[in-house]
Write a protein that binds this DNA or RNA. Structure first.
Lengths: 91, 91
DNA sequence: ACATTGATTAGATAATTGTCTAATTATACA
DNA sequence: TGTATAATTAGACAATTATCTAATCAATGT
């Protein structure tokens, strides 16, 4: 839960997730979309991987990243619970 | 969106939200639940307020904080969207 | 008016974070 | 075998963040 919210805190990482929801992408392809060096992107991807928000598979020299949605379910549950109880209390 | 995720990143702040989903609480009441000084709690509450996750009303010397759930809907939408498109792509 | 209590503000500080450059690893290809 | 390309790792550094103590503000009660 902590790693997840930590990962979601950064705008660059959220944008990467949005890109990956459309299609799987290599580090280079992701890197092109940002005014930022490849090592920096690599750093963000590593953080996302630790949060289990993405997975990486390597073919040849390329590493392709995919979005992993299972962990997001937990966050969804957590937030939903806040909203639910919030609403109940309000009445 | 950025302020929201920034606010949710910290464990102390998430715990505060969980407490506020049960009932409204004063700063002192919240403070008691943590091994942390009141100024530190005040700092976190201010951050939560800026993210519009809580509201504060003052009666007498006391300031009572309440959970505000409207902003959470946005985050929910954002996350849901990731999950949805993630699932679609997967098939 | 003064002391007490609840809360915020100010200022200092150590830890964490996001970025960079340089170096390294690993694959591809001529 | 050597060189080019994709990506990660290492190390440095500035900015941000979470915490503390001390000071201040505001309301309460004597």
């Amino acid at each position: 839960m902590n790693l997840l919210f930590k990962a979601l805190r950064d705008p660059t990482r959220r944008r990467i997730l949005e890109m990956l929801k459309e299609r799987d992408l290599t580090v280079g392809q992701i890197s092109e979309a940002f005014a930022m060096t490849t090592p920096s992107i690599s750093y963000h991807l590593d953080l996302l991987k630790h949060a289990q928000l993405v997975s990486a598979r390597k073919n040849g020299q390329f590493v392709t990243y995919s979005l992993e949605t299972t962990v997001l379910d937990d966050s969804l549950g957590w937030i939903l619970d806040l909203i639910k109880k919030g609403k109940r209390k309000q009445k």
